[in-house]
Design a protein around this nucleic acid. Structure first.
Length: 138
DNA sequence: CTTCTCACA
DNA sequence: TGTGAGAA
């Protein structure tokens, strides 16, 4: 049954990432696959964790933040409270991430406006120089 | 195919 | 946060 364990190649194919990225996550302590000799063996649980890692990345979370969250996923055997704690943490991460994004969006809008003004200034300066260079296309 | 290490943006 | 190279 290939359903009980996966090779690193199977995982890279399924999630479209490199073997090195997967080993990197392991190095960072996000996943701890077993070993068959020196080959890594990934359990269904490892696969789920990998999926969670990728989802966290999409949300723009750091590997450290992702680790905090999915580590609770294990502690959740006692369901209930732990489940709640994990969800609360993820919610908190998402809200902070949103704040950061909003601030960046604000900075971008300000920069875009500034560029509009500088562009106009440049164009006017060019015209003042005596010729609308661009417009005089032969 | 997979492993590891060193170096590097 | 990963990648590339090179050796085993």
């Amino acid at each position: 049954m290939s359903s009980t364990s996966f090779s690193i190649a199977q995982l890279t194919a399924e999630f479209d990432i490199t073997p090195r990225a997967i080993r990197f996550y392991e190095d960072r302590g996000l996943i701890t696959p077993g070993r068959n000799g020196n080959r890594r063996v990934y359990s269904p649980r490892d696969r789920v964790r990998l999926k969670l890692i990728l989802r966290g990345k999409r949300l723009g979370l750091s590997l450290e933040e992702i680790r905090e969250i999915i580590d609770m996923y294990d502690t959740e055997q006692d369901s209930g409270q732990a489940q709640r704690a994990q969800l609360d943490l993820l919610l908190d991460k998402i809200r902070k991430r949103r704040q950061t994004l909003m601030a960046q969006k604000q900075d971008i809008d300000v920069l875009l406006d500034f560029m509009d003004r500088v562009e106009v200034e440049c164009t006017e300066a060019l015209i003042a120089l005596g010729d609308g260079g661009k417009l005089a296309v032969k």
